[in-house]
Design a binder for these strands. Structure first.
Length: 415
RNA sequence: CAUUUCCUGAGUCUCUUAA
């Protein structure tokens, strides 16, 4: 069981839930009874792949086979109810169940719920959970506060975020590099690059040390506002500080090069990756394929996809979305559908938005309706992009009355 | 039975869709 768990954990980290499931089956067939840790590993792998129904099944299996869940396994349930399904009533229900069964929720459980609530924009509710936590004599840590920082920053409430940083200090949870990274991301997003420069200068006296993520954040944001020259200066500083660039750093630079100069130069960087001591990953390929998709080079996209496969890098949902988009743009709906319906691929809302747009453009209204009802069955919830796409397409086709009806029909259900 | 070690859960950065 230990060794199986180690293996499963490795595949889970590599983002390969199917292999995790295969090992899990193999384990049970070889009469090696999984323990709580194994069940939790499997559940977490499934949740990370947004396959929560299957995770729920595994939890039930665990109960049925008489294995007692611990705080960690319950927390995985809280995680998928709050992070993915946003069903907070169910998350609270899990916590009540924990208390009833004598397995008290700990700081991780509460922090998970707080994170989910903050991501959903329910900041007030989240403060309530923090109170509940304090009443339950469970001491909060940095994980309990940073979700609030993130929420404030994304709402543009920079002042509130700064004030929270100060209170963290006085409460005895001084902000760490992660907290500063969240703040820096928020500051960059709202254009306060000068404030970021100051924070970096004062880091020693403020008691924190910038890490690779700090610079990745700063560099990426500078690139996004077209200041790639300044971004490269920061990359130099990062290297001078002996901070090792990560694969994310490489991907940020790659993205900037592909957008600003040519895909060709981006590809060139890929070939020189070894000099940096970094190996490319699925995101590197997605970055290039996406730019190729943009300029309509289907055959190049397919070639890179093959290269990627040969290197043993598994495609993720983004990869498949780029492929589907490229195929549709080239009018090859048949192949696109092949990917869409292939097992092992789990469509998300982005996949559906791409198809909705392409079906409209191609006038494939029947296909469109099939897709919409399929989304309903698969529980894929439309987002703002879905609605904007539909409205935009209706208007472009001159169907203004239909567009107006549509807006009215979704007015209350607008996400 | 105790003790020690190993294996499970939470926060920040990069890629995909509309305008």
């Amino acid at each position: 069981p230990f060794h199986y768990n180690l293996l499963m954990k490795a595949f889970s980290r590599a983002g390969n839930p199917d292999e995790v499931l295969r090992l899990f089956r193999e384990m049970k067939e070889s009469k090696c009874d999984p323990n709580v840790l194994c069940y939790t590993t499997v559940m977490d792998a499934l949740v990370a792949a947004n396959r929560s129904e299957e995770a729920e099944n595994v939890f039930e299996q665990m109960i049925d086979s008489g294995v007692t869940p611990d705080a960690a396994s319950f927390t995985v349930l809280v995680k998928f109810y709050s992070f993915y399904l946003k069903r907070f009533d169910s998350a609270y229900e899990i916590i009540r169940w924990m208390v009833r069964s004598g397995c008290d929720p700990d700081v991780v459980t509460y922090s998970t719920l707080i994170t989910g609530l903050c991501w959903a924009g329910m900041v007030e509710e989240a403060w309530g959970v923090l109170d509940q936590m304090l009443q339950g004599k469970c001491a909060p840590n940095a994980h309990s506060y940073t979700p609030f920082l993130e929420a404030y920053c994304s709402q543009g409430k920079i002042e509130a975020a700064m004030r929270l940083m100060e209170s963290m200090r006085s409460i005895g949870c001084p902000p760490d590099a992660v907290a500063y990274n969240i703040l820096i991301n928020g500051l960059c997003k709202h254009g306060y690059f000068d404030v970021v420069a100051h924070l970096l200068q004062n880091s020693v006296s403020d008691g924190w040390e910038p890490d690779a993520v700090t610079y990745n954040t700063y560099i990426s944001r500078l690139c996004k506002v077209g200041r790639s020259g300044d971004a490269f200066k920061q990359l130099e500083i990062m290297l001078e500080k002996k901070l090792c660039p990560t694969i994310v750093t490489l991907n940020i630079v790659l993205d900037s090069i592909c957008r600003e100069s040519t895909v060709w130069e981006g590809n060139h960087l890929l070939e020189r990756r070894l000099e940096l001591g970094l190996d490319v990953d699925v995101v590197s390929y997605n970055t290039i394929m996406s730019r190729l998709c943009e300029i309509g080079k289907l055959s190049w996209v397919l070639k890179l996809f093959n290269d990627m496969f040969k290197k043993g890098i598994s495609p993720n949902t983004e990869t498949c979305n780029i492929l589907i988009h490229s195929l549709c743009k080239a009018g090859n709906f048949r192949k696109a559908k092949c990917i869409f319906t292939s097992k092992g691929f789990f469509a998300d809302i982005v996949t559906c938005n791409i198809l909705i747009h392409e079906f409209y453009k191609a006038g494939k209204i029947d296909e469109l309706h099939n897709l919409l009802s399929g989304m309903d069955m698969e529980n894929i919830r439309p987002d703002t992009v879905t609605f904007n796409t539909i409205i935009d397409c209706l208007c472009r086709n001159g169907k203004f009355l239909e567009a107006i009806d549509f807006v009215r029909s979704v007015e209350d259900g607008y996400p």
